[in-house]
Design a protein around this nucleic acid. Structure first.
Length: 851
RNA sequence: GCCCGCGUGGUGGAAUGGUAGACACAGGGGACUUAAAAUCCCCAGGCCGGAAGGCCGUGCCGGUUCGAGUCCGGCCGCGGGUACCA
């Protein structure tokens, strides 16, 4: 017998599938469709284990659903715009387009070796003009529907490189290349009105029954609906135009505990004051040196500046409160101004202690006490508390009741009004970069902002650009920028901002239903294939990508590009865990981290070191594999030495799909050994003859295995399906059943393995005279009658601890089980002549004797 | 900081509130072999014990329950997101 040789059988079956057109999606009105989609990859140039895991999972679902008779759509494409291409252009003097398409070619070849059941005829990259041109057409439609607008927003500005930085490019407040302190700078930018959909995007989450609760929970918090009071304080001797300061609070019941007013450094009042006050200007400038990310702002040391202005408390005009500028107040949320209640907010408490501001309690525990000097008192809003400075509602009431009472009271007294607000901000889509989808508008001195004519789309990126200077090459392109106005024909300027790459990935699922259509979608195809029945991707996309896609589907429906049923485009979502790996780092002469690929690191008795130089390497615990940290593993080596089936089997077997998995080399060898063993068994069985014993027992195991493996796939418990197939391999190996029974068992096993190890499954299927391709064979059915056992083993617990077990007939009445249990030696001994306090019998499950 | 997860043997993990550790990896013992590889068989949570058996055990502390890895509360640690990484 020859050996198991994946590099021979895998290309053979890949060719057979291609010849048969097995994976070509067919619009077949007579069959139920199933659309399975994995989040498409960024073409970094190399497949990594995270891809293998993600796409193998999707492939299991796709192949399984096909076997169940569905007309399956399982497409693949490339999320091809983005920063790394521009970085490559700067570092290696290659054109971003050339770099990207070369990466795609390379990765596609690697993909092919995995034997995924993909319909490559639908492939596209988001950087194809054919794709982004349709995106531009939709942008224009969105403009017409009022879903797009422009406003000022802040960006990270590198004053040395004179360029806008991504948050990722800001390290400790400094630009990653220049090392310059980053500043916040305002630019006019394009926005989608996603916040118009806040309520709908929130409410509709309740209907997404097949989404993970954690993702819905994250989105709910992100959208962040809050109920509160908006009102204004009247100011004392403020600059002109600032007679009032508008604030929003979710805790109006604490108004009598107000201690100060805080405004954002970006608040109009703060900006007005800094014109005449150099100290305020200096403070604000200092605040603006914090990056734009929420994380940076929130983690920064809380600082304030007393403006000297005062406001009057709305309940008591003799009570004046100081107005501070505080660096932790975000201009983007609420009104950019708050009042601080140190007694009931820890951040305000810290601030009050730091600057010697009063701490005034408004409520205390209903029973007991709380030292308000030491820490803020912040009980859950649902907990009843005793109001010491209440002004509406009962003395003892919950925060929730008090908030509503306070809103009613204030509204009744002409002090502001109750409002519902959302944390969700509009989606800023402008990027000052080259490698993205051009925003298809023209700026004309006479006509203003004019959309490009649709017949002129796509607005293509110019090829001839240089990256020798930082900043957006489109901005300094000699000819691309200067165009006639589409409206009046006079000289005008193209918009040089491109779109956020999240726009590209917000509708690709819809484009896959008609990837070659001359409109963004084709109504007939969209109607047949939408929605995505199963979407699979990383948890890191739980909020932004998925929320933006939900918004985009709604916007596409409003502009006639998707049917009503597709406004929630993903019927079911599965978030797989990440593939993690240790990180290897050394420091450069400026003590900045330099990351190293695992393949460049060697382990010695002194620890990890660089293979080339022997320089010691610091090992940082496992984290998400990312190109920037270089903690990536190349699966190509595994495929070339063990074959795709081994790689697939391994990534499915070692960890539950939703959990992170740390990649190890150890398991690959074991996976290969197992598949070799299965292959050997199939060869033995193929030539076996004669009768044996235990045919029925083997058949029962076959049916139990069908059941368990099927349940595993249905519930995304691929690792348990794999474990079950391991166990069945052992069973079949030990079985003394006759040749026919073992052949039948082996054929079923090939079918059950086919979604996971499709090449080996085909080989075995052919070896055992299976009909046609196993990839096109119907899924085996478990016979329910074969699944039930006649006797069951029941554990006997005494006081909740297992002490014995008895075997009873499956349908033995409860009373008889009780009798049998009480008669058991261990129970008799434990009872010592007495009667049990309680006897719990769950038939088929457990017996618990309480003494 | 805030939001969301996760935490089980040496390792990856299994377990509708009902026998914790299935199935593997690494390890140990044995068979086969001149030998090795490969393959096959067996052992294996910890502690005590020759064994029978006993005690402990799912990050930590507490609670609900006849019964908690699973549910609830509070900690600790790790990870993801934090609106310009994708």
């Amino acid at each position: 017998m020859s050996r198991f040789q994946p590099n021979e059988i895998e290309p053979k079956w890949q060719a057979a599938w291609e010849k048969a057109g097995t994976f070509t999606a067919r619009h077949d009105p007579d069959r139920p469709k199933y659309y399975v989609l994995e989040m498409f990859p960024y073409p970094s140039g190399n497949l990594h284990m995270g891809h293998v895991r993600n796409y193998t999972m999707g492939d299991v679902v796709a192949r399984y659903k096909a076997a169940q008779g569905f007309s399956v759509l399982h497409p693949m494409g490339w999320d091809a715009f983005g920063l790394p291409a521009e970085n490559a252009a700067m570092e290696r003097k290659v054109h971003p387009g050339d770099w990207t398409y070369a990466n795609i070619e390379n990765m596609k070849r690697q993909f092919a070796s995995l034997g995924l059941s993909l319909d490559w005829s639908r492939e596209f990259a988001t950087c194809d003009p054919g794709y982004y041109g349709q995106q531009q057409a939709m942008f224009i439609d969105f403009m017409e529907k009022g879903l797009v607008y422009r406003k000022n927003a802040v960006v990270n500005w590198d004053p040395v490189d004179m360029t806008v930085l991504a948050n990722e490019q800001v390290e400790d407040g400094r630009g990653w290349r220049s090392g310059a302190v980053v500043e916040r700078r305002e630019l006019t930018q394009w926005f989608f009105r996603i916040s118009d959909f806040s309520e709908d995007l929130l409410e509709a989450l309740d209907g997404l029954d097949n989404w993970p609760e954690k993702v819905k929970s994250m989105q709910r918090n992100w959208i962040g609906r809050s109920r509160g009071l908006q009102f204004s304080f009247s100011t004392v001797s403020a600059p002109e135009g600032f007679d009032r300061i508008e604030v929003y609070t979710t805790r109006p019941d604490t108004l009598m505990g107000a201690s100060f007013i805080g405004v954002s450094p970006d608040h109009p009042l703060a900006k007005a004051l800094e014109r005449d006050n150099p100290d305020i200007a200096a403070f604000n400038a200092e605040c603006r040196k914090t990056g734009t990310s929420e994380e940076a702002l929130e983690k920064a040391e809380k600082k304030g500046f007393d403006t000297g202005l005062r406001v009057r408390h709305p309940f008591d005009t003799g009570w004046e409160l100081p107005v501070w500028i505080a660096n932790f107040i975000l201009m983007d949320y609420g009104t950019g101004a708050i009042y601080g209640v140190p007694a009931h907010d820890q951040r305000d408490h810290d601030f009050a202690v730091k600057y010697g501001l009063p701490i005034i309690d408004t409520f205390l525990p209903a029973a007991g006490d709380h030292d308000i000097r030491a820490a803020a008192y912040v009980p859950p809003k649902s907990e009843p508390v005793r109001y010491t400075r209440g002004f509406a509602g009962d003395e003892v009431q919950t925060g929730e009741a008090a908030i509503e009472a306070a809103i009613r009271f204030c509204e009744g007294n002409g002090i502001g009004q109750g409002v519902t607000r959302f944390r969700l901000r509009d989606w800023g889509l402008s990027r000052q970069r080259y490698w993205g989808c051009p925003i298809p508008v023209v700026h004309c001195d006479a006509c203003g902002v004019v959309p490009e004519k649709k017949e002129n789309l796509p607005v293509e990126l110019p090829r001839d650009v240089s990256f020798d200077k930082p900043g957006n090459p489109l901005d300094r392109h000699p000819t691309w920028r200067d165009v006639p106005c589409p409206h009046c024909g006079r000289p005008a300027r193209r918009e040089t901002d491109t779109m956020d790459t999240f726009v590209d990935s917000s509708w690709y699922y819809a484009r896959f239903t008609a990837p070659h259509a001359t409109t963004p979608t084709d109504p007939v195809e969209a109607d047949y294939w939408m929605n995505v029945d199963q979407y699979i991707g990383g948890i890191e996309h739980a909020i932004l990508h998925l929320l933006y896609s939900r918004f985009f589907a709604r916007a596409m429906h409003l502009t006639g590009h998707l049917p009503q049923k597709a406004i929630e485009p993903f019927d079911a979502l599965f978030t797989q865990g990440m593939v993690t790996h240790e990180i290897y780092v050394t420091r450069d002469d400026r003590d900045r981290p330099v990351y190293h690929l695992p393949e460049h690191v060697e382990w010695t008795e002194n620890g990890a070191q660089l293979g080339a130089t022997g320089e010691p390497v610091e090992v940082i615990p496992s984290a998400k594999m990312s190109k920037s940290k270089k903690n990536v593993v190349d699966p190509v080596n595994i495929v070339s030495s063990y074959g795709a089936d081994t790689a697939r089997w391994f990534v499915l077997s070692d960890s539950p799909p939703e959990r992170d998995v740390e990649w190890t080399a150890a398991g690959a060898e074991a996976a290969f050994r197992h598949l070799s063993r299965v292959w050997r068994m199939a060869n033995e069985i193929a030539t076996a003859t004669g009768e044996g014993t235990g045919d029925t027992e083997l058949l029962r195991e076959v049916h139990k295995t069908i059941h368990d493996v099927t349940m595993g796939i249905e519930s995304f418990g691929f690792n348990t399906s794999v474990a079950r197939l391991y166990a069945f391999t052992n069973t079949l190996h030990k079985s003394k059943a006759g040749a026919d029974a073992r052949r039948q068992a082996m054929r079923v096993m090939a079918q059950l393995m086919s979604p996971m190890t499709p090449h080996l499954a085909e080989e075995i299927w052919a070896l055992l005279d299976g009909e046609g391709l196993v990839a096109e064979a119907p899924w085996p059915q478990a016979d329910p009658a074969m699944l039930v056992e006649d006797t069951v083993t029941m554990p006997i617990q005494i006081n909740g601890k297992r002490k014995a077990e008895i075997a009873v007939a499956r349908d033995l009445p409860k009373e008889d089980i009780e009798k049998r249990a009480l008669a058991h030696d261990a129970v008799v001994k434990a009872l010592n002549g007495g009667a049990p306090k309680k006897l719990i019998v769950v038939p088929g499950r457990i017996i618990n004797v309480v003494i």
